[in-house]
């Protein structure tokens, strides 16, 4: 389990996480054995299509899985200490102080009835023992840092007086108010226009790099990942299909699903007449096929794929050399395991 050497200190580790939802037709496995670590100052992008389980993974880490869902297995560690089994009250204190959260819709994460400043000051004071005036100073400094013009004036504004991009900046300020070690950003730019999206990604990336905050960036947009993430995990049907340094995964995806996904995205420079098409759709989570979850849609599937479930692993040495695979690039696919004879 070697990680990328530049981020030696894991802030958060997720080991074999399983999340299940009780339904009328039996338990539904939304997350099925997901493992990863995020180091200090590192941005891990988690990408996948709807239903892949990327948002549920985020919610599970911060203990926000509501009934009928539950963590059915595995563990989550923050600085080496388990947090998935903490009592609700302790978890609540941890969120906000050690873990920050940024959600998709800035309108719902800010209370429309309170001034922006009050929400910031309240957060700062709940998790620290600053005086009211010191907390206000700090809030103004934070707003300035996230790029809100005239923060000493705007701090007394209400959320509806801010534009979408500015609101998301406030949400970022709110998430970073207590200098958390770990931030979960769930689709932070999805509700924003392209031109604003670029600004927000750059801001998030800069702030977290300077503070050494570990970030889990959940998104469906490969472009956002390419811009912001250091490493990326591609999820499919509740499992990680491929995880590795962003450049390698984006430029040389190994997993047939990841490769298909990359080919399916139209880009500004491609001249292709047709986009790569992955046939079919992601299986319903109540009906994940045995073996590799992707096998019914995979053009390169063989017998073993329908029987044995592949685990994320480093590709075999021979393959790694042939396909120029970087270290730390793991893929859950039988095509890349050592048993070459299987093909």
């Amino acid at each position: 389990m070697t990680e990328t050497p530049s981020f030696p200190e894991p802030v958060i580790s997720v080991r074999n996480l399983v999340v299940e939802f009780a339904t009328r037709r039996g338990p539904l496995r939304a997350i099925d054995g997901v493992s990863f670590t995020i180091g200090k100052g590192e941005v891990l992008g988690v990408v996948g299509e709807s239903g892949a389980g990327k948002s549920v993974t985020g919610s599970a880490i911060i203990g926000l899985i509501d009934a009928p869902g539950r963590i059915a297995g595995g563990e989550v560690l923050l600085h080496g200490k388990r947090i998935d089994n903490l009592p609700a009250e302790e978890m609540r204190r941890l969120r906000g102080r050690k873990i920050g959260m940024i959600f998709q819709d800035p309108l719902t994460s800010l209370d429309p009835l309170f001034r922006v400043g009050d929400q910031l000051i309240e957060t700062i004071r709940t998790h620290s023992d600053l005086s009211a005036s010191a907390a206000r100073e700090r809030a103004i400094a934070l707003l300035a840092e996230v790029g809100i013009p005239a923060p000493e004036r705007r701090i007394d504004g209400y959320p509806h007086e801010f534009s979408g991009g500015m609101r998301q900046r406030v949400v970022i300020a709110l998430a970073l108010a207590c200098e958390p070690d770990f931030v979960i950003a769930d689709e932070p730019t999805t509700a924003l226009d392209v031109s604003v999206q670029a600004q927000i990604i750059a801001l998030l990336k800069r702030l977290c790099a300077t503070r050494g905050t570990a970030v889990m960036l959940v998104t469906h947009d490969m472009g956002v990942i390419a811009e912001a993430a250091d490493r990326v995990a591609v999820m499919y049907a509740g499992r990680i299909a491929e995880i590795g340094p962003v450049r390698d995964v984006v430029k040389h995806p190994l997993h047939p699903y990841a490769a298909g996904l990359m080919g399916a995205i139209p880009t500004l420079s491609s001249e292709a007449d047709r986009l790569t098409q992955i046939p079919g759709a992601m299986p319903r989570l109540t009906n994940v096929p045995p073996g590799c979850a992707f096998n019914p849609r995979c053009a390169r599937a063989f017998d073993r794929c329908c029987i044995e479930r592949p685990e994320p692993a480093l590709p075999s040495a021979a393959l790694a050399a042939r396909e120029h695979v970087a270290s730390g690039h793991r893929v859950a696919c039988h095509l890349y395991t050592a048993r070459e004879d299987a093909r």
């Binding site: 600004q199 490969m222 472009g223 390419a226 430029k251």
Partner: peptide
């Protein structure tokens, strides 16, 4: 607008940062 599109080719092309909102 073109500069704001994320660079999926990771070509590292030079881009001017976008300013302001609509």
């Amino acid at each position: 607008l073109l500069d704001a599109v994320p660079d999926l080719d990771m070509s590292g092309r030079q881009r001017t940062p976008v300013a302001g909102e609509i």
